[in-house]
Simulated scan of single mutants.
Amino acid sequence: MRPNRKQFIVLAVAVLVGLAVTAAILLRRPPEVAVATVEPQTVELGLSVVGRARPMDLVQVASPNPGQVVRLMHDDGDRVAAGDPLAVILASVEQAQTEADLARERAARAEAADARLKYERTRTLSERGFAAPAALDAARTALQAAEANVAAAAAAVRASAERAREFTIRAPMSGVVLVRPIDNGQVVAAGETLFELGSAAGVEIRAEVEEAYADALRPGMTARASLSGTSTIFAARVTEVSPQVDAATGGRLVKLAPEAGPSLSPGRSIDVTIVVGQRSGAIVLPRSAVADATAAPKVYVVDADDIVRERAVVVARWPTVNALIERGLAAGDRVVLDPASARVGARVRPVAPKTED
């Protein structure tokens, strides 16, 4: 027996009523909210900074005199031993001074030769009685003065020649040529850097740490380090914390020594986490769970009746990935992980956060 039209209408009305009842139940059902149950734990306090590798010793090699670079023996990346020649500088200014001193020496020698002739002539006349003894004494004095001038001029020429010779710039220590900012034929000034040498004895890591956090650092603290962009971790140790604060940046220089790990090229950026200490019974939450973190930090807590309540908290001022709660929460509190998903005073259904497979 086929259903008639009236029976179809009754069936449709029944389905619509069922859907309406189901929708009403679902609409009255409290929304799900992901919460985290507070569980105090022991956490590590670490300070993460970015440092750079640097040779233990860094020396700027400069020319003591101005001149022209006439020969270069080494380039970037070359290894040198202490005393190895690096470059030859031709001191052109000193050469001009030497030529002037040579001219003065020739003039002094000519004057000395003339003084000797006059002395010999006066001595001959004196022996024959035609010149007074005073004239002979004056001629002898003039000759001695002229010979002294020759000796002085010759000494000046030797000094100028020593200054004007080709200067050989030598490595003050064993190491690696990091930078060679000059080229062959270039004219350099006195004190201008010709080479930058880094010691081959070892490498250190240098990082600048904000003064507010650097006060907690001490030599001997351990650290974890990795080359920026890689996941390989190696151990390091704090060797020095500068007592001086850089007025321009407000940071203090911290030096670390790698204890093992890959070869560090000078200038390579390194991610460093310095282990400052541990805190037992600490409460840690994702920073996204804290609302108004900079002004008036607070969290949303679900009470025993599943009602969302607002709770003011105190967040430790420490640069960590998660928020370290110092006051305001206790063990067992259920904290809403996304404050934007809940409304204060609303009833919710707290659920565990979803985990990625």
Score class of each variant (00 low, 15 high):
residue 349 R to A: 05
residue 45 L to W: 09
residue 102 L to I: 12
residue 64 P to G: 01
residue 339 P to E: 10
residue 344 V to T: 03
residue 301 V to D: 00
residue 127 E to P: 07
residue 246 D to T: 05
residue 126 S to D: 14
residue 153 A to N: 08
residue 17 V to Y: 08
residue 286 P to S: 03
residue 66 P to V: 08
residue 77 G to S: 02
residue 256 L to K: 12
residue 165 R to E: 01
residue 342 A to S: 13
residue 100 A to Y: 09
residue 82 A to E: 05
residue 231 S to Y: 08
residue 172 P to H: 15
residue 26 L to R: 10
residue 285 L to N: 00
residue 299 V to Y: 00
residue 59 V to S: 15
residue 179 V to C: 02
residue 107 A to K: 10
residue 92 S to N: 12
residue 192 E to W: 08
residue 256 L to P: 04
residue 172 P to W: 10
residue 246 D to P: 06
residue 338 D to P: 07
residue 116 R to G: 00
residue 217 L to Q: 05
residue 6 K to T: 13
residue 10 V to W: 11
residue 30 P to N: 00
residue 91 A to Y: 04
residue 99 E to H: 11
residue 180 R to C: 11
residue 175 G to V: 05
residue 142 A to F: 02
residue 258 P to D: 12
residue 217 L to S: 04
residue 289 A to C: 02
residue 1 M to S: 08
residue 344 V to Q: 04
residue 189 A to C: 05
residue 305 D to S: 12
residue 299 V to A: 00
residue 328 G to Y: 04
residue 131 A to I: 04
residue 71 R to V: 04
residue 263 S to L: 15
residue 148 A to T: 14
residue 211 E to P: 06
residue 82 A to H: 08
residue 343 R to D: 02
residue 147 E to L: 02
residue 166 E to G: 01
residue 87 A to K: 04
residue 6 K to F: 10
residue 98 T to G: 15
residue 237 R to K: 05
residue 322 N to R: 01
residue 93 V to Q: 08
residue 100 A to K: 11
residue 127 E to Q: 13
residue 139 A to R: 09
residue 44 E to S: 02
residue 249 T to Q: 15
residue 208 E to F: 01
residue 251 G to H: 06
residue 17 V to F: 05
residue 311 R to S: 01
residue 135 A to E: 02
residue 56 M to P: 03
residue 296 A to M: 03
residue 163 R to Y: 11
residue 226 S to K: 14
residue 148 A to Q: 14
residue 283 I to G: 11
residue 337 L to I: 11
residue 51 G to L: 14
residue 209 V to I: 12
residue 37 T to L: 09
residue 65 N to E: 07
residue 124 T to W: 10
residue 181 P to W: 06
residue 301 V to S: 00
residue 24 A to L: 04
residue 206 R to N: 06
residue 29 R to K: 08
residue 250 G to P: 08
residue 217 L to H: 03
residue 315 V to C: 05
residue 163 R to I: 06
residue 17 V to S: 11
residue 337 L to C: 09
residue 96 A to L: 04
residue 130 F to W: 15
residue 14 A to V: 15
residue 40 P to I: 11
residue 210 E to N: 01
residue 61 V to E: 09
residue 160 S to F: 09
residue 278 Q to N: 00
residue 163 R to F: 10
residue 165 R to C: 03
residue 29 R to M: 08
residue 270 I to Y: 13
